[in-house]
Design a protein around this nucleic acid. Structure first.
Length: 207
DNA sequence: AGCACGATGCTCT
DNA sequence: GAGCATCGTGCTT
């Protein structure tokens, strides 16, 4: 099995951000760390779309922090928040239009021992938990997710049927005005998803 | 099982 | 100087 052919291509990320966010469910986030391949199935993601979106970092226009979102699609937008957490996004849509998908949760499937150790046995359901588990920080900001040499990319996985997708409001937008605060741009796989079978027998795969 | 809160530092006004 | 696209702990039901 040649992993190269499975890397999601640039044109995947040029699609509307909502479609990218939804279709990233079931895809495989891959990180090569110290020569070891770590991977997890994406089970939760959120869309942030343009300067109009008052929940999006681009709501006040381009700044040094959010510049990558204005760049070409298929790149990693990694930013720091809450004094200690790194967040990983995939930039979407055309160059010049600021939009991205925040990756919020994965279920580990490769390098599970390493991931578990990096998480001290805790789960990987949460945006900062992903970056901690996979060794992602500001050094990866701007990386090309369509290139293999970046050590960070996303591969096609088992598609998740519509019946297994739940949508709802994005998380943590406390001071964001409506309709942005409640607009259902968060997507996750529903707990009974066949994707999650056989993974350690955990009772609760989604918080 | 569900809050409440402290940690901790970068970014932008 | 305020505000974070959060997490883990600890305390309360």
């Amino acid at each position: 099995m040649n992993s190269v052919v499975n890397i999601l291509p640039r044109h995947f990320y040029t699609q509307p951000t909502l479609q990218v966010a939804r279709d990233l469910l079931g895809a495989r986030l891959v990180r090569v760390l110290d020569g070891v391949r770590l991977a997890g199935i994406i089970v939760e993601a959120e869309a942030y779309i343009g300067e109009e979106d008052q929940g999006c970092h681009a709501r006040s226009g381009r700044t040094r922090r959010n510049a990558v979102m204005y760049g070409p699609p298929g790149h990693a937008y990694v930013y720091f928040t809450y004094g200690m957490h790194w967040m990983l996004n995939a930039v979407t849509e055309r160059e010049g239009f600021p939009a991205a998908v925040l990756l919020r949760a994965i279920v580990p499937i490769e390098g599970v021992d390493v991931i578990s150790a990096r998480r001290q046995g805790r789960d990987t359901l949460g945006p900062a938990k992903i970056t901690r588990a996979l060794g992602i920080d500001g050094a990866q900001n701007g990386l090309d997710l369509c290139a293999q040499d970046s050590g960070l990319w996303i591969e096609a996985g088992e598609p998740v049927p519509d019946g297994a997708v739940i949508s709802g409001p994005r998380v943590g937008l406390f001071t964001v005005p409506e309709p942005w605060k409640s607009i259902p741009w968060r997507f996750r796989t529903s707990p009974p998803s066949p994707l999650l079978e056989g993974e350690g027998g955990n009772k609760k795969m989604i918080k």
